[in-house]
Amino acid sequence: MPEPLTPPNGRTASEAIGNAGAGGTMDFAASEAVSIGLATAPTARARSLWSDAWHDLRRNPVFIVSALLIVFLVVIAIWPQLIATGNPLACDINKSLLGPAPGHPFGFDTQGCDVYTRTVYGARASVTVGVCATAGAALLGGVLGGFAGFFGGWWDALLSRVSDIFFGIPIILGGLVFLSVVTNATVWPVVGFIVLLGWPQIARIARGAVITAKQNDYVQAARALGAGPIRMLLRHIAPNAVAPVIVVATIALGTYISLEATLSFLGVGLKPPTVSWGIDISSASTQIRNAPHMLLWPAAALSVTVLAFIMLGDAVRDALDPKLR
């Protein structure tokens, strides 16, 4: 493009044609083109996969909505007193099954406990189980799957068969068997059980991602320039294989929360006095005709929570791995 690059002193040439106005606009175009040309090189921001992903995420309404919901949920899980002043375990049997009343917008359950307070306090169990189980499964599955993919051979064969065994366990049946013998009423047996059955899924993804990354030329190049196996794995393979693991883990988080609710509903997950949406849904299920509000609120809270995490997972997947879209 020779024209826009005419230096400002090109004016004399255009004036010679006798059209000062045209010369002026050309000069403007010229200086603009030059300044753009100069500006692009140094101001082009260094963009890595992560900053690219963040750039995409910030503009994705699905991400913003789900992230806000999740932030709200986490805050509520940590400090339920912020929006619920009552005590979820302080119940008045006289108010059993009563509908909404002033100060008790969601009504009362069979025991006369405030449904609103219990719904708010229920977030803690769900979020704790979801986050801890996901972290555990991602860590265990990521590390085992990553090593299997990297080293291959008998270690890979062994791990694949072991994960096949875990895949073969029906999750609800497994939960009924394993958790019915547990008397501990905290969230940890449930977390442990979900990690135990959840890691093979993540291990498979991690294994595949590591095998793909391992075949890249830059891993070979790193090796040719003297990198050892640990450095190759941690610095060249892991950062290029972690994206699919994060995606699967984020989506799994939502399903883990609903799994906790399912197990609690069946009476083998969390147990009273722990407050859980699953337990509340379970006790509401017998009273659907008399007191539908008992079922509505914890079920709605559960659905919204699971939806938020799955939407977040979708948004993260779109940002990190556009090919999967």
Binding site: S48, D217, Y218, A221, A222, P239, N240
Partner: peptide
């Protein structure tokens, strides 16, 4: 040391 054919694939994209 070795120089590879395709530098785009021989350089780690995340570093």
């Amino acid at each position: 040391a070795m120089i590879f054919q395709d530098a785009l694939s021989a350089l780690n994209p995340v570093l």
